[in-house]
Amino acid sequence: MNILVAPDKFRGSLEAAEVCDAIASGVRKAYPDAKVTSIPLADGGEGTSKILTRQANGSEVTIAVMDPLNRPIKATYGLSEDHQVAFIEMAAASGLGLLTVEERNPLLTSTFGTGQLIADALERGVKKIILGIGGSATTDGGIGMAEALGYSFKDHEGNTLFPNGQSLEKISFIDVRNVDSRLTPATIIVACDVTNPLYGRDGAAFIYGPQKGADPEMVARLDAGLENLALVATRALGRGVSLVPGAGAAGGLGAGCMWFLDAVLKDGISIVMEQCNIASLVSNADLVITGEGKVDEQTLAGKVVKGLAGLCKSHHVPLAVVCGSLQITPEQARAAGMTYAVSVLNRPMDLNTAQREAYSLVSDATFQLMRLFFFNRGAA
């Protein structure tokens, strides 16, 4: 019996690798002779870099960068074992988690630190960069990142602008004379799990600005700034990317990566599954067990569970899902390709208790689903 265990994290309680261990322990309690292969997954957001680095037998690099408010901090990214691929999360340098609630202000924040991480990876000779852009504190269209890589943004009088959100509306010219030449041969893939355009009512400022500290006036100003950036960048760089799905991700960093890095946007789970060779592992499995903290409508739109469900369906392999909170109907689960889906909660409990007991809850729920699986196969 070949069991593939491939979950996402349970946010606030277990990292993906810990969920793997908990599920594997439940499998072995029910079926000690099972062959268990564990692959922690992520959807391109928090934790993706660590998972991809581990999968590539790589190592971590920690350097000094600027945080979203231009203060010095340490940030970490991953390198593959052969140092040819870098795994970077923009949140490590430009993330919302680096600021207090009172400090959140997308007019003032910048992705400059993310550009510093990219520059350091290029300095180390990488040929490929996988960049996760979830969790941003910024709405600067990627101009901070670009500045760290040699781009310069000028107003109508030729003055150099500080690369943050409030400068977007003032940009009249982009100076590309000092752009880092090492960008040209590098392949850059961006893990992006949203489809918003750069500006407009569904764009970066209106949809995500408020959670980054923007009031209605700031939102309107940022949206106008992103539209101005689009006009200037399209003229200067010859690419109109504002309506590409994902252009508005991470405060417009999606568009910035396409303009300034010539990057390709892909959904995060596809990148992670490709790097982990999941398709081959699924094809050889008798059962796949996955999970995440909450299975809901967002799960059905493209997270880890949805990505695996599609693969399992194509290979005719049953998929079992364990989760903390199950918020979809049986009909939705079946339509998405899930053979079995269950919450790990086995009694009424508050959130703190559920998080504290998460490991044992996941293990016990897995034990029960394995017993059910074998019963249905005539093995119990």
Rank of each mutant, 00 (worst) to 15 (best):
A42Y: 08
A42G: 02
E46Y: 09
E46T: 10
G47T: 06
G47I: 09
G47C: 11
S49F: 05
S49E: 06
I51Q: 09
I51H: 09
I51D: 07
Q55G: 07
Q55A: 14
A56T: 03
N57Y: 13
N57S: 09
S59H: 11
T62V: 08
T62P: 03
A64G: 04
A64P: 07
A64E: 05
V65T: 15
V65L: 03
V65A: 04
M66H: 15
D67I: 02
D67F: 09
L69E: 15
N70M: 15
R71P: 00
R71I: 12
R71S: 10
I73P: 05
I73S: 10
A75E: 03
A75I: 02
T76F: 01
T76C: 04
Y77T: 02
G78V: 04
L79K: 00
V85Q: 00
A86L: 01
F87I: 00
I88Q: 06
M90C: 11
A92S: 14
A92K: 07
A93G: 11
S94M: 13
S94A: 15
S94K: 14
G95K: 04
G95S: 09
L96K: 11
G97Y: 11
L98N: 06
L98T: 14
T100R: 03
E102A: 09
E102N: 05
R104V: 15
R104F: 06
R104L: 12
L107F: 04
L108C: 12
L108N: 13
T109Q: 03
S110A: 10
S110N: 06
S110K: 07
T111M: 13
F112T: 01
F112G: 04
G113T: 01
T114N: 05
L117W: 12
I118N: 02
A119R: 14
A119I: 11
D120Y: 08
D120L: 03
L122D: 10
L122E: 09
E123A: 11
R124N: 02
R124V: 14
G125K: 02
G125R: 01
V126M: 07
K127V: 00
K128N: 01
K128Y: 14
K128G: 01
K128T: 12
G132C: 06
G132I: 03
G135D: 04
G135R: 05
S136E: 11
A137N: 10
A137L: 10
A137Y: 03
T139A: 14
D140F: 06
D140C: 04
D140R: 13
D140W: 12
G141W: 07
G141N: 08
G142Y: 02
G144R: 04
G144S: 07
M145H: 10
A146P: 15
A146I: 09
E147Y: 13
E147Q: 11
A148P: 10
A148V: 09
